[in-house]
Structure formats: structure tokens, C-alpha cells
Amino acid sequence: MINEADLKTVTVLYVEDDDYIRQLVARFLKRRVAKVYEAANGREGLDIYLANSDEINLVITDIQMPVMGGMAMIDAIHKLKESQTIIITTAYNDEFHTSNKVCRNIIKPIDTEELLEGIMFCMGLKE
């Protein structure tokens, strides 16, 4: 049983280099969760994470990005906190763009229903 109200306690770090997509997905998230931090590449994402790691419950990240890619950022975050829950959103369903160390790999184009279901599952809000 999905109860969207439970998401109101969740803080998300969302990392995506495409401005339109970041804006649209962030908007979708903001309607449902407590807070959304936005970053345009792995470097920015990592900086925000370092400053707010206590607060951030969930990281949602693209893979292919300039400056620092998603994989490098995920590795750095996992070194800090192995248990950090992460969801990948990527355009490519291949070994370079997906990982089995994250909770979900979501292939673009993003279906917001699927994303929502993934978030609920990863946050343990749904069996």
C-alpha cells in the first residue's frame, strides 16, 4: 500500500546535468518530499552531500555528466556512508551506466510513476 504522505519526511539530493530535466523532475519531487537539493554534476552533488549528509536520506543521480560523472560520485558517497540509498536515472541500459550497488536503476525517459514507486520501495515505505 503506497502512502505518499510518508514521503513528507524524506530529503533528496537530485543530480542531473540537463537543466530542463532537472527542473521538471525536481518539481515533481518537491510536490511530494520534504526537501530537494539540486546539483548539475557529480562534483556539485558531492559538495552538497558532504555539507548535508545527515539530512539527506536519498540520492537520485544521472550517470553521464560533465566535471564528475555519476559513478565517481556514487563511489565517493559510498566511501563516506556505505548504507546511503541511491537511485540511478540514466538513458543507457548498459554496464557502464547502471550499477548493482544502488537500490534502483531507472532508464530514461523517466516515467514519474516508476520513479515514485522506486523511491517508495527504496525508502522502505512499500513492501
Partner: peptide, 11 residues
């Protein structure tokens, strides 16, 4: 762009 358009539609 296809991803963006699909998101706008869902939004």
C-alpha cells in the same frame, strides 16, 4: 529532448 518532452507531458 525526448525525455524532457515526456516529463513535461507527465508534469
Amino acid at each position: 529532448p525526448l525525455n524532457a518532452i515526456s516529463l513535461v507531458a507527465q508534469d
